Simulated scan of single mutants.
Amino acid sequence: MTSRRRVASIILSALAGISVVGAPTVAAAHPHIFVDAKFEAVAAADGSLAELRDTWRFDEVFSSSVLLDYDKNGNNTLDAAELAAVAKTVRESLGQYNYYTNVTINGKAVTLAKPDVLHGAYENGSLVLSFTQKPAGKTPLKGLIVFGVYDPTLYTALDFADDADLKTSGDGFNRCSRKVVRPDSKEILAENQAMLTTMFFNDPMGTDYSQIVATRLEVRC
């Protein structure tokens, strides 16, 4: 593998949460991958959660690195088989992070099933991945439901450019109110300076910082 192809492999591995030699060790303070994200929660007519839909469009720098590593036929794009290989790698590896998708109902985490498949596309120089997750069991929408899509390691920055990029659909949500919450990270940092030690940033999996600063969709039914 050439040095450039190895770099691409390391980046994709970092996205997938795989520990590899050469991967950055201090991810919390410096995201390395940037994603324009869209999220949709779908409710069934009986008022239960039916499924969650995520779409991620990766930045051009990361996308070009993936292209270097997965463009096996050298035609400067990702064909169907190559996209399937990328999606398969991410599907198999991101499970430990629940595909960055988190749901709580009245403070209790909802268990989500692994997506059957991730769909890939390569559009205007950007890698796009989309997938659907379903609750592992019947999940009535009662009380405060919080939907969050974020990387707990803070290596990947998932950005929802507009509030409309976090949405609900389905008759089961008709009786619910909704709001998008965008925490002010500067205020949070100022209020928690005593906690922000080197150990805090080097051990993001042991803290709630990523969850605290993440944009989220709150629904009350």
Rank of each mutant, 00 (worst) to 15 (best):
A50I: 01
K142R: 14
D203V: 15
L78I: 03
V110H: 02
E82P: 04
T198D: 06
T139K: 06
K138N: 15
A194L: 12
L158D: 00
T153V: 01
L144C: 06
K108T: 01
A8K: 01
G107N: 05
M205H: 08
D184T: 09
K38Q: 08
S169V: 09
T77N: 14
A214T: 04
R182I: 04
P152R: 03
V219R: 01
D71Q: 10
N124I: 09
L78A: 05
D69W: 01
V20Q: 14
T207L: 13
E40M: 08
V42K: 04
A37P: 01
V35S: 00
T2P: 13
R182V: 08
S126K: 15
T101P: 03
G120T: 09
T2E: 13
L94K: 03
S126D: 14
E123I: 15
A161V: 06
D54V: 13
I10C: 04
T197L: 02
G17S: 07
V117M: 00
K167W: 03
R5I: 14
V35D: 00
E187W: 07
P31G: 05
A27Y: 07
V35K: 01
L118V: 03
Y155M: 02
L52N: 04
I11C: 10
F58D: 04
A113D: 07
A28G: 11
V66I: 09
N73P: 04
K134E: 10
D159G: 00
M195Y: 07
V146D: 03
C176T: 05
V61T: 15
A14G: 12
G107A: 05
A50Y: 00
G206S: 14
A23L: 08
A80H: 09
L118K: 00
G137F: 12
F160I: 04
S48R: 05
M205E: 12
F39V: 00
Y209F: 15
K134V: 13
Q96V: 07
A80I: 05
V66F: 05
